[in-house]
């Protein structure tokens, strides 16, 4: 049976001009799809093309070649209303919560900005929607008048998530969204992302260099190297039975606690 994914990318290619006659092909034809309430993890080392791929999927940049389909509609190179509709359906959460939030805007202004950009009239008013959105991500709605600098890193990232959710998107693209966070805060934000997925039927594209984190959030994983997807599969397939040599070497390089210590701790 054919199933229609929420987002489908086919042979995306992206070139960057590096000089008058030189071009660098950062992404060399990648294909993937994401279903509803599904998370695709994209992993790779620096320079692998994972962030460029994420930016194409978010339509922050256009591919040089290839096709991007959202909800069955071709959105490649689309602007105007089609782009506005796409922005309502797909939102992005970035790595550094402080630099991606306007420091001179209150949390209320930050979170309601996407509503403003899209010229949306909101039932019950912006203030109510902002407060709901803050509650949903575990922030105290009474703090909507504060500025981003008054929040901790984990809280600031929750603001970024609240901003993404305010337009009720179907897909959220997380580009190293938990990489800058302390491990205990990271665990809480991952919990939040999973809860939101369950409650709102959200889909995610989750870009990260940390493989252990990706295993805790992604249903399926694409491994990128030098602009190509070298291997793609379910998280069990990628982590427990990697087939590509590069995936194997990547997994082998991840530092791990001695399994016997880990077992002893679980038992005790």
């Amino acid at each position: 049976m054919t199933r229609q994914p929420l987002l489908r990318a086919e042979n995306l290619v992206r070139d960057f001009r590096t000089g008058p006659r030189t071009i660098f092909r950062a992404v060399k034809g990648v294909s993937f799809d994401v279903a509803r309430r599904e998370t695709l993890g994209i992993v790779g080392e620096s320079g692998s093309g994972k962030s460029t791929t994420a930016r194409m999927a978010a339509k922050l940049i256009e591919p040089t070649e290839g096709l991007l389909e959202f909800d069955g509609v071709d959105v490649t190179y689309k602007a105007g209303k089609a782009l506005r509709d796409f922005r309502g359906g797909v939102q992005v959460v970035f790595q550094d919560p402080y630099s991606s939030l306007n420091p001179r805007h209150t949390v209320e202004q930050v979170i309601s900005a996407p509503l403003l950009y899209q010229g949306r009239k909101v039932l019950g008013g912006r203030r109510r929607v902002v407060k709901e959105s803050m509650e949903r991500v575990g922030l105290n709605p009474d703090h909507s008048g504060r500025y981003p600098a008054q929040f901790s890193g984990g809280q600031a990232q929750r603001i970024g998530i609240a901003r993404a959710l305010v337009v009720e998107p179907q897909l959220v693209i997380c580009d190293e969204a938990v990489s800058a966070l302390d491990v205990s805060v990271q665990a809480q934000v991952l919990d939040l992302l999973r809860d939101l997925q369950r409650d709102l039927n959200l889909s995610y594209i989750f870009i990260a260099h940390d493989l252990a984190v990706v295993r805790q959030i992604a249903h399926k994983v694409a491994v990128m190297k030098s602009g190509e997807i070298v291997e793609q599969g379910s998280r069990e397939a990628i982590f427990d039975a990697p087939r590509h040599e590069y995936t194997q070497s990547l997994l082998a390089a991840v530092p791990q606690v001695d399994p016997s210590w880990e077992a002893a701790r679980q038992a005790g």
Binding site: T2, R36, V183, S184, A187, N201, R215, H219, Q256
Partner: peptide, 26 residues
């Protein structure tokens, strides 16, 4: 707590089931 919060490479938490909608049945 710190050890429990550290994500493991050889273990995983449960995720919500994806919704795999057949074409045309939406």
């Amino acid at each position: 707590q710190l050890l429990a919060a550290t994500p493991r490479l050889d273990d995983q938490v449960d995720l919500p089931e994806p919704i795999l909608t057949p074409v045309g049945s939406e």
